[in-house]
């Protein structure tokens, strides 16, 4: 059990624009266990896994941002493929 799972603690977030018109924001889980140090690359890898696995062919566009106000764009996916 990873303590304090909270979207405010996440380092990155992913906004997914689904084919059916829905838009959802997913927040990364950046820890391996509750006492570990936050790992941004790990969180991004998990979001990548979600986009290229679970949601493959279900979304039009997905963008990963830094989880802060006006956060920088880190990665962009189009129809299940990473483009940037």
């Amino acid at each position: 059990m990873i303590a304090n799972i909270d979207k405010t603690n996440s380092l990155t977030k992913c906004i997914v624009y689904f084919n059916d018109g829905n838009v959802h924001t997913f927040y990364s889980l950046d820890k391996k266990h509750k006492n570990s140090k936050q790992d941004k690359a790990l969180g991004m890898r998990r979001l990548d896994k979600m986009l290229t696995g679970t949601f493959k062919a279900k979304f039009e566009t997905a963008i990963i941002y830094d989880n802060e106000l006006n956060g920088a764009e880190l990665a962009k996916y189009k129809r299940g493929v990473r483009v940037n």
Partner: peptide
């Protein structure tokens, strides 16, 4: 493979 700076650094 396309990688961000964070992933490259890791």
């Amino acid at each position: 493979m396309i990688l961000s700076d964070v992933e490259n650094e890791q």
